[in-house]
Design a protein around this nucleic acid. Sequence first.
DNA 1: TGTACATCAGTGAACGCGCGTTCACTGATGTAC
DNA 2: TGTACATCAGTGAACGCGCGTTCACTGATGTAC
Lengths: 222, 222
Amino acid sequence: MTSASAKRRSPGRPAANDGGDSAGQRTRLLDAALARFVRDGMTATTARGIAEEAGVTPALLNYYFGGRDALQQAVVEERLMPVLRHVGAQLALAGDDPATLIASFTSAIGEAVAEYPWLPTLWLREVLLDGGALREVFLRHGADMLPRALAQRFVAAQKSGRLNPELDPRLLVVSLVGLTLFPAAAAPIWRQVFAADDIDMTSLQEHTWRLLHDGLRLEDAE
Amino acid sequence: MTSASAKRRSPGRPAANDGGDSAGQRTRLLDAALARFVRDGMTATTARGIAEEAGVTPALLNYYFGGRDALQQAVVEERLMPVLRHVGAQLALAGDDPATLIASFTSAIGEAVAEYPWLPTLWLREVLLDGGALREVFLRHGADMLPRALAQRFVAAQKSGRLNPELDPRLLVVSLVGLTLFPAAAAPIWRQVFAADDIDMTSLQEHTWRLLHDGLRLEDAE
DNA sequence: TGTACATCAGTGAACGCGCGTTCACTGATGTAC
DNA sequence: TGTACATCAGTGAACGCGCGTTCACTGATGTAC
């Protein structure tokens, strides 16, 4: 009976002093939904599962949000979008120098992942992968702020000779995402495959920076 | 009535000359399941949806495979694993030279993706992402053949001075996947974001090779 | 070459189950007098 | 300071629906004589 989820609520309106969950059931439901979305994918997550995760009746989900779809929308608006806007704002602050810009991007992603560990998985599954539930949302409210803004500044950097002109600036954005968000999302499996408990996110960032900066340094470079 | 899926089968055993689908309903079900798995994810795909995709009664799925789970297993065994084994074999054939090895890897992935466009999406969603349905299968039957084999040869290449010794060989495998499979899986969205119909998979491969080989070539390189 | 029959390749209707949602209700809380 | 009552924060049982699976069946095919 010590567990918070094990206590069965008595019928009727709960007493005001109900164990300090004054943060509200709405917040609890949002967090529970996010957790399940990350674990099982948005399409595969059931309303009853979210309610169970939150330790709450499925009816409460409809009481606060009106339905499963509306809850999903609220998670996007109140959990995902703020993080995107924050990363976009950090990027906008970075200078025009490509070295600073790329460092800003990787560290902004790194900080976001450290604070919101659910970000890379949700991002890959629901935005980037075919059939993702958030693709439309991103195309409307994130594409200008992040990938297109980055690519444009790479173009400028190439014009002023500060960035390898042989690289496609658009594909460079894709490469950067593949070297930052993707490894973060896949961390559990590569840690397991390589028994790599010694590698933390900082050494991952350093590795990535060295690879980007120096390349592979193959012996027989032409 | 020209569409193959629109014709309604008459009851009883079908005539032998039934429109050239002698390839068999089993194969048709495997293909339909794979298509839905890629589109919606394995967990979110219903048996009835697979049957609909195949233009067949849901009961047939149980007739041939015994159940939805067994069909899923058959898709993995008869569709996914052969591709993995093929890529693994190509990699085993490549020499020890890291330039050749990495070129073999990227071209093996490129060819596999060209022949089996469903590969990157299925791979990312079901193997690499947290909660993927195929993670266990891969850890048992693919991890030695592919990522661990690659990492070991990078270690050897670094010992003989043919590869940048500052790169973590295990993370280099992760980086390579992030630069090949990930961009392939995300192709639909970055094509749309950048209106990049001009970029085909060949130019993607060239971009990636240049990035790996030369790095970013920033002006203020130390 | 006929014919009887076992087998084979499915179908269609029905099953129990978990899903998302609704609705009448409960009992604590806030407010008016 | 009491008291009556509206409101608020939920609950529990029930709804129709789509799910995966089962099972009796159908009619073409293959085989034995």
